[in-house]
Simulated scan of single mutants.
Amino acid sequence: MRERLNVSIQSASLILVAAGLAWVVWSNDTSMKEMLTYLIILILLIEGLSLFLIGKVYPESHTTFKTGILASLLILFGIKIMAPDLFIPLTITVFAINFMYNFYTNGKRRQGTFKRKTGGKLKTR
Rank of each mutant, 00 (worst) to 15 (best):
P59Q: 02
P89V: 01
L70G: 03
V57F: 05
I75L: 15
P59D: 01
T64N: 08
T93L: 11
N102F: 14
Y58M: 09
Y58Q: 10
T93N: 11
F99Q: 14
S61L: 08
I81N: 10
K66M: 06
T93E: 05
I97E: 11
L86V: 02
M82V: 14
R110K: 15
K121L: 13
Y101P: 04
K108A: 12
S61W: 09
M100K: 13
I54P: 02
V94D: 02
F95H: 06
P59C: 00
L74Q: 10
G107C: 06
T63L: 11
L90F: 04
Y101R: 09
L74P: 00
G107N: 05
A83T: 11
A71D: 09
L86P: 02
P84C: 06
L74D: 02
K108W: 00
P84W: 08
L51Q: 02
P59S: 05
L86Y: 08
A71G: 04
T67H: 03
S72G: 05
L70W: 00
K121E: 11
N106C: 07
K56H: 08
R110S: 11
Y104Q: 03
V57N: 06
E60W: 14
G112M: 08
T91P: 04
S72W: 04
M100E: 11
R110I: 15
P89T: 00
L51A: 02
Y101T: 06
I88S: 07
S61M: 07
K117R: 13
Y58K: 13
K121Q: 12
K66R: 07
F114P: 07
L86D: 12
I79A: 01
S50F: 01
G112Q: 14
I69P: 01
T64A: 06
L76V: 02
L122Y: 12
G112F: 13
K123N: 09
S61R: 13
L70M: 12
G107Y: 00
K115E: 11
P84K: 02
G78Q: 03
M82T: 09
L122Q: 10
K123M: 07
